[in-house]
Design a protein around this nucleic acid. Structure first.
Length: 718
RNA sequence: GGGCGCGUAGCUCAGUGGGAGAGCGCUCGCUUCACACGCGAGAGGUCGCUGGUUCGAAACCAGCCGCGCCCACCA
């Protein structure tokens, strides 16, 4: 039990000294680990967006951690059984890349050591570095259930993933197809549409003449001349008067000599280029679709290694794509077929994962049909069972879901959930356990990381078993996340939750701000605009960082504001010193209790009720900047600047009623502020009389009163 | 091309029909028995532009200018 006298010398609040000590007390207390009991309706739970196991805490984590922790601590202190489901994601490509980089440094490679050894290395990596991000969340003060930590490669979790895959396969949603995919030469894997980002690029638009059999020619435009080697048709628009008589004729592909039918397809724009389009089903997504419509051959001249294949002909085979482009242009020029070239700026797909330019390739992959699963997930949002905040994001979700496309779920990686699929000759076997008999070979591919993430809210609770955890905490209450994974993750959780856990995974989705650099640019390591939240925590304290991030957040993106962090730091110190004044000034025997004797006593008690109503309402409304700034204004502007200044003379006169009132106001203020600034409030709490337990587990006297009561009380005060 | 959002004090932002505000910064003063991460006072804005609705507009509507983000299959 700390001695109050010790406060005399501690004239400044020192977060660096206090906070690690408090973290240890919290973790030792078991407060963050609820026993599963009761129903999800009466309990409160949030599943954390699982950080990458290789990651370290960035500003987005810090803000989202602060948001979730405010909600979690708020509900815990209002007496609800509260669980913040915590864990990490195996993060397929990100982790694999890290491990591969290390192997490279050792002068070897994943191919050289083989799959089994590689997986072992990845696990070692995880053992070594996986706890980093966990410690960082603890340093932030996140009151998650670390005793029940999950990993998407936990045995039980893997079982859930396999079960879902097999089930979807048996329902006919998952299928295998030879289809054009986004091939990422960087990670040497297919990736999904959502992992592709378009960037503006300056290219040259070449016009190339193809002869027509029986005389005449067509002129096609392309920024990728090297793909002409894989052309299998030329297309015009059926409405295009100019070319109506060309349809049905045959063009001859230069350099190759292949005969190309001239076809008619609505896709061709009459007002772009010449209105004559080369069709390359093997290397262009649109052309692939056109090819399917017209039954065209698919020729592949670019391989998965980004080099020209034997199909490209011996002049070009083996060349990298860009080398081939030059070589093809040169060869065409020699034949006098380059009819024109002009600069052309356009959007080009790049891999979000590796940064490499996407190579659309036809490849045998596993896909998941989404439209049927999307329907109930659309209903859930349209009916308001799932609410998305801010409102503007709701329509974005619905638009995307209405136009949802199949999801390529297979990845040519090693670090991931290997498909529960076996082949023997023409046979395919899909089950959670390997088939009987000889000669079966397992599909080497693994699942997209987001496939397992989609199960997060229920697979973490023991699904598919009917566990007490699942009954107590599913559905969760809310999900807090960044906008960029609304489709990648949130939409899929809603679909999977409805399909497999039988209910929506959460009632509210809160899409938080993206914190930009102070100059408005993206925070990024490569731009050098990143600010490390841990540095900020070291300098200003976790309370200050939490307060600052919450105070600067809003329903849109915001610039990082060092001033708001400093404001939080000032608040912590102010509260600390106000507490010193009270604790060192009141009678030793005094106990907290509202015993107003003067007008200012009644006034501050009224303001306290007002502040509580404001805090509760703003938290429930996900308006966290109001929560933070409201606390600041109550503590600074009302409690300290007015009330404490007014009562100082009485305090020195040893007024027992005042002592009781001061202790009461302090206790209630600490409880009110605790969800936002948990450290300083917990530290002060330890000096309060009767405060044997932790503030984090304390429940104010009337926690269950509804907000309506608070409002009514507020009216009375007026 | 479509969608969402933003433009209010030097900076970062709140404010949605009737008083133009907060934090930081700035100026002046005070204080050192809770706190200089302190206390008090103050300066500073034609609320992007234009038009409309209204007794009344920073707020509602339309257009324009500027900026950001998301989605999208024009080679």
């Amino acid at each position: 039990m700390p001695e109050r006298r010790d406060l005399e010398s501690r004239t400044r609040y020192e977060p660096a000294e206090v906070e690690p000590r408090i973290v240890r007390r919290w973790l030792d207390s078991g407060l963050f680990h609820p026993e599963p009991a009761g129903t999800a309706a009466e309990n409160y739970s949030i599943a954390i967006p699982p950080p990458n196991v290789t990651g370290s805490l960035h500003m987005g984590h810090a803000l989202n951690g602060a948001i979730q922790d405010v909600l979690i601590r708020h509900h815990r202190m209002r007496g609800q059984r509260t669980k913040w489901i915590f864990g990490t994601d195996h993060a397929g490509i990100a982790t694999q890349t890290q491990v591969e980089r290390r192997l490279l440094e050792e002068g070897t490679s994943r191919e050289e050591i083989g799959r089994e050894a590689f997986i072992r290395r990845a696990w070692e990596w995880r053992e070594q570095y996986g706890s980093k991000i966990v410690n960082q969340f603890q340093r932030l003060g996140a009151s998650a259930d670390y005793e029940d930590e999950r990993f998407t490669f936990d045995e039980a979790y893997v079982r859930a993933v396999m079960r879902v895959f097999v089930d979807l396969y048996e329902k006919g949603y998952i299928y295998r197809d030879r289809y054009i995919v986004n091939w990422d030469p960087g990670s040497r894997s297919a990736i999904s549409d959502l992992e592709v980002a378009e960037l503006e690029v300056d290219d040259v638009l070449y016009s190339i003449d193809y002869d027509l059999e029986g005389g005449g020619k067509v002129s096609v435009a392309t920024v990728r001349p090297e793909t002409m080697l894989a052309d299998t048709a030329v297309a015009v628009n059926p409405q295009d008067e100019r070319y109506r008589d060309l349809v049905g004729r045959t063009a001859v592909l230069p350099l190759v000599g292949r005969r190309l039918p001239v076809i008619a397809d609505e896709y061709v724009k009459t007002d772009f280029g010449t209105g004559q389009l080369k069709i390359t089903p093997g290397h262009d997504p649109n052309d692939f679709e056109i090819g399917r419509r017209h039954g065209l051959d698919v020729v592949t001249v670019i391989g998965e290694d980004g080099r020209m294949t034997a199909q490209a002909g011996e002049r070009f085979a083996g060349l990298a794509v860009l080398e081939a482009r030059e070589a093809v242009v040169e060869a065409l020029e020699a034949e006098g077929r380059i009819a024109g070239r002009e600069p052309h700026r356009h959007a080009v797909p790049f891999s979000h994962r590796s940064g490499k330019r996407i190579e659309p390739l036809v490849s045998l992959q596993w896909f998941m049909r989404m439209d049927e699963l999307a329907r109930p997930a659309i209903d859930a949002v349209e009916s308001g069972r799932v609410r998305i905040h801010p409102e503007g994001q709701r329509q974005v979700y619905l638009d995307w879901m209405e136009n949802i496309r199949p999801w390529c779920v297979s990845r040519q990686l090693w670090w991931g959930h290997q498909l529960p699929v076996w082949y023997r000759g023409e046979e395919t076997y899909v089950q959670t356990t390997p088939p009987e008999g000889e000669g079966w070979e397992r599909d080497p591919d693994v699942l997209d990381t987001w496939f397992s993430s989609a199960l997060w809210p229920f697979a973490t609770l023991g699904w598919p078993d009917d566990t007490p955890q699942l009954r107590a905490f599913y559905p969760t209450d809310m999900l807090s996340t960044a906008r960029d994974i609304l489709f990648l993750w949130v939409a899929r959780m809603i679909m999977m939750g409805l399909e497999f856990a039988g209910d929506i995974p959460f009632e509210d989705v809160y899409v938080h701000s993206v914190i930009q650099a102070p100059d408005g640019r993206r925070m990024s390591k490569s731009l050098g605009t990143g600010i490390d939240p841990l540095d900020e925590i070291e300098t200003h304290g976790a309370d200050a960082v939490r307060f600052g991030l919450l105070a600067m957040s809003s329903t849109q993106d915001v610039r990082y504001s060092a001033e708001k962090i400093e404001q939080g730091e000032a608040l912590a110190n102010k509260l600390w010193n106000a507490s010193r004044l009270i604790l060192l000034g009141v009678d030793d025997a005094a106990r907290p209790g509202p015993r107003p004797r003067t007008a200012e006593d009644r006034w501050i008690l009224g303001r306290l009720i007002e502040a509580r109503a404001h805090t509760y309402l703003s938290i429930d409304g996900f308006d966290f900047s109001r929560t933070a700034l409201g606390l600041y204004s109550f503590v600074y502007g009302e409690l300290c600047d007015w009330y404490l200044e007014l009562v100082k003379p009485r305090l020195y006169e040893e007024d027992p009623d005042l002592s009781a009132t001061l202790l009461y106001v302090l206790r209630e203020t600490l409880a009110l502020a605790h969800p936002v600034i948990p450290f300083v409030t917990e530290e002060i709490w330890s000096y309060l009389p009767e405060a044997t337990d932790l503030l984090a587990g304390w429940r104010p006297d009337e926690p269950d009163r509804s907000l309506r009561d608070l409002d009514a009380e507020r009216e009375v005060e007026r």
